[in-house]
């Protein structure tokens, strides 16, 4: 009897997922077996649990795509919006209720192709939103079309002879556009991702966490990268910590994924600046 109670108490520590899942909302998820979106979802749950935030004070906004189905499973205030427009909706939520924590879950096609302009302007405003960009290098939900992050010469259903275009680096794009916190992790480094997501949520200003994920159903199959296990293990071989990457030459870094906290600056945040403007004008009246 005594062992049962201790194990039950201990079990609550690892059983935090159930606290954050919507009851009767379709678990198991619609994602393919071994999809990295689920690993990112558990990392978000653990990060939020570690921060001790209330479920009522979190708004999760998403657009359209595989990754954007996450708010359906997670028991936060959810907003499932139009394709690419998750960040404008989130900007509106944050602007109206600056006390809420706004988390945007978006995919690479959602944020960078159709919502590319919204993405760079959300970065430019430096509004206090945490964007978690799940980068699987392809449009997964609609059938494996090439996305802005599909690497050169990689295959997809719209680039059957190899992609002739160059690809975006979402982290570099966000840092250049003015985001004040940019980090990258892969689904293999799930514990590091949890830490980075926690830092991003606590950070005041626009923070981007790029979660490099696997789409073995389309990207892995068309590019002969094999099953989810092979793809996840390949992230381990390809990734380089940011401290080590600083000492490496660009030739050595070709094809590598630099992980860790890439960029952090301390600048003014949009809601603060707006509030100070309001206060200043109120005082003048």
């Amino acid at each position: 009897m005594a062992t049962a109670t201790t194990s039950e108490k201990a079990k609550q520590k690892s059983d935090i997922f159930l606290k954050y899942l919507r009851p009767r909302k379709g678990m198991p998820s619609v994602w393919c077996a071994g999809c990295g979106n689920g690993i990112v979802m558990t990392a978000i749950i653990r990060a939020i649990d570690k921060l001790g935030l209330s479920k009522d004070n979190i708004v999760m906004v998403s657009g359209i795509g595989c990754s954007s189905r996450m708010p359906i499973y997670l028991d936060f205030n959810a907003l499932h919006t139009t394709h690419g427009r998750a960040l404008p909706f989130a900007t509106g939520v944050k602007f109206a209720r600056p006390d809420l924590k706004v988390i945007v879950v978006t995919g690479d096609g959602d944020a960078l192709a159709i919502g590319g302009n919204h993405f760079i302007h959300a970065c430019r405003r430096n509004i206090d939103i945490t964007a978690i960009l799940i980068n699987n290098n392809i449009y997964g939900m609609t059938g494996g079309q090439g996305s802005p992050t599909t690497p050169s010469a990689a295959f997809s259903t719209t680039t059957p002879y190899g992609n002739a275009e160059k690809h975006f680096d979402p982290s570099a794009l966000a840092a250049a556009s003015g985001a004040s916190y940019v980090a990258r992790s892969t689904v293999y480094h799930a514990t590091a991702m949890e830490k980075l997501i926690g830092e991003a949520i606590s950070h005041r200003g626009f923070s981007l966490v790029e979660a490099v994920s696997n789409c073995h159903t389309y990207y892995g199959r068309l590019n002969r990268q094999g099953d989810p296990v092979t793809m996840i293990n390949s992230f381990k071989e390809k990734s380089v910590q940011v401290t080590k990457a600083k000492k490496m030459s660009p030739e050595e870094l070709k094809g590598k994924i630099v992980i860790g906290k890439l960029h952090e600056v301390d600048t003014t945040e949009f809601c603060d600046v707006y509030q100070s403007t309001v206060d200043r004008l109120d005082g003048r009246k």
Binding site: S7, A10, K11, K13, S14, D15, F17, L21, M27, P28, S29, W31, A33, G34, C35, G36, N37, G38, I39, M41, T42, A43, R46, V187, Y188, A190, T191, E194, I232
Partner: peptide
Amino acid sequence: CTICWVHCPDLAITSNYK
């Protein structure tokens, strides 16, 4: 070591002792 339930995409593994 938590590797299995950290990497489970379907939240199917929980620990009885940790």
